[in-house]
Design a protein around this nucleic acid. Structure first.
Lengths: 335, 335
DNA sequence: TTGAAAGCGCTAACAC
DNA sequence: GTGTTAGCGCTTTCAA
């Protein structure tokens, strides 16, 4: 693999000049520049980003840790990140631990060892300590997760408000017995659960609270729904912690012979591409993934450029998207 | 940010010992090792992968270029890649150009400048020359795409056979007028089209060939279907170049009042998670994404370890997955 | 406008 | 078992 020295020799100049050319710096005579470009081409030279990064002490790379690449919602987030990063002259490198906490932490370490200039943690299962640790060496923005330590910024959607929107929508149809399928241990999931609980209480439905375990996957939703189906008295509506989970639940309910929304109403969270499909047509809470990705990049760059040292916590508003999985309960609400 | 020297000083040892410890090499006294570990912890030291990579001339990182992170099929591919790479002690870094050819090429260059030890190109829109160029510096495996140059290995599913499976299945129901919605300019898409054409000819259906433009996205499928709907005589069956495309087409057809599979049969390609959803239940051609990802890693490591210098071209067999979007044509087939 | 030289943080070869 | 040193490929003073 050719080095800058090979190029310099071939072009009959010093390394410095080659460096100036690859960095697009001016002040090189047209003649030498041409010779250098030619040598680069002939040798298939490509600057070594590690050597460069080592001396420049920055990489202009933003690291992104995504826990579930199979969830289309994160596809939207990444699009937003990529778009804004590119505008600002940064590259984006993505890593995933495929939902395994230990692998995720090691993947994050990997990014850190590479000395990325900033890190976006999109809803991972990475522990608080690991985040704090990362935050000590590089600007970090976490997505959809509360941060205790104030070393990192966050961009979240208001999960409490979103959950309330879901419950409110169901209540407005006359539902009272509204169950919740949990989203597992991820940070955002816990807050949605909290939002559900609060909303139920606020609507005077404390007695009707039912929660079952689940996860932010179709399988998780399926299992949660099966739990619900075992109950003596079924809920008339179900709020699932995310769309994937809702879709899994939908499958389970329909397999059990229930018709949605006639026998049961269902609401998800995220508004991912699957939810919008005509055949799914899931009523859900929209979180603007692309916007959140773009904001995360902005926050990161402010830190990198040193424009801001105060922690920032962006909260975007979720909104209700009514589709075909919600309607009035089969029997008149008692109240 | 602390360096290895800081750690050495704090632990009262030389850099070499610290290096040995971070690399997990033996031959360090228990006493010093403990002191070093402590210093590392206190200083929040993290080895600089750039400096390390510079001297070791390898990074143990595999780069993956994915063109569409919104397509769940690639999620499966990445899972496979990640799993196998981890077993073999390699990290995986993913990049995407979000379906923009120029951005994709620059994203690929980025990976190359970082000196990844190998590159997996998962169905990107990157040009042949760019691939060949990359192949000159690092082992490259391309997914689902024919390579002209023999510098890179490939892992593909047999798109010709897969397309034939789709056509055959429809023919077995008595369909004759089977249209094809194209998948755009990506390499795999062109081969599927070719497979469709060949299969139609082989079944003596040359007269019935109808192709319309599309892309490997829902929007692309929707538009392709709209084209089809404008035709004087509608096909009785449609084969779409991938699942996303098929799902978009399904939406368009149903919006136009057609019922699937009664008025029209539909087959996709990939067997992604959306296709398997109960409400979509798309008949499709399965390609084993996870297996393909794992194979790609294997091929790459053979090259990296120098175990193989001959080009390899893995071809996996696609299979038909019959679900609910195909059936006999509404009117008896004439023949 | 150009070149020489120091040094980024690390590993590896060697000496002790 | 431990320390010293050269050098990976680059950028960045600084001089010429």
């Amino acid at each position: 693999m050719p080095t800058i020295l090979d190029v310099a020799r071939r072009a009959g100049v010093s390394k410095s000049l080659v460096s100036m050319v690859t960095r697009g710096e001016g002040g090189v005579s047209e003649e030498k520049r041409r010779a250098i470009l030619e040598a680069i081409d002939e040798l298939d030279y490509r600057p070594n980003a590690m050597a460069r990064g080592l001396v420049q002490r920055q990489t202009r790379i933003l690291g992104v840790m995504i826990s579930d690449l199979q969830n289309p919602f994160f596809g939207a987030v990444i699009s937003g990140i990529q778009e804004r990063a590119e505008e600002r002259g940064f590259r984006v490198l993505i890593t995933t631990g495929d939902r395994t906490p230990s692998v995720e932490e090691s993947a994050m370490e990997n990014l850190l060892e590479l000395r990325v200039d900033g890190l976006i943690l999109a809803s991972p299962r990475v522990g608080d300590e690991a985040i704090a640790h990362a935050g000590r060496s590089v600007p970090v923005v976490v997505l959809n997760r509360d941060t205790n330590d104030d070393s990192s910024d966050s961009v979240t959607n208001d999960n409490i408000a979103g959950a309330r929107l879901a419950v409110e929508h169901l209540v407005s149809f006359g539902h009272r017995r509204i169950a919740f399928i949990e989203g597992g241990v991820g940070a955002g999931a816990r807050i949605r659960r909290e939002g559900y609980l609060r909303a139920m209480r606020d609507f005077g439905l404390e007695e009707e609270i039912v929660t079952v375990e689940g996860r932010h996957t179709e399988e998780g939703g399926h299992q949660g729904a099966m739990e619900l189906l075992k109950m003596r008295v079924l809920p008339t509506a179900v709020f699932a912690s995310n769309d994937l989970c809702a879709i899994g639940a939908m499958t389970a309910f329909e397999e059990a012979g229930l018709s949605i929304p006639d026998d049961l109403s269902l609401v998800g969270y995220d508004n991912n591409r699957m939810a919008a499909l005509r055949h799914i047509s899931l009523t859900t809470i929209d979180q603007p993934g692309g916007d959140m990705g773009r904001s995360a990049v902005e926050r990161l760059l402010e830190r990198i450029d040193g424009d801001r040292t105060e922690p920032s916590h962006d909260v975007v508003s979720p909104s209700l998207v009514v589709r075909s999985t919600t309607g009035p309960p089969r029997f008149e609400a008692k109240a």
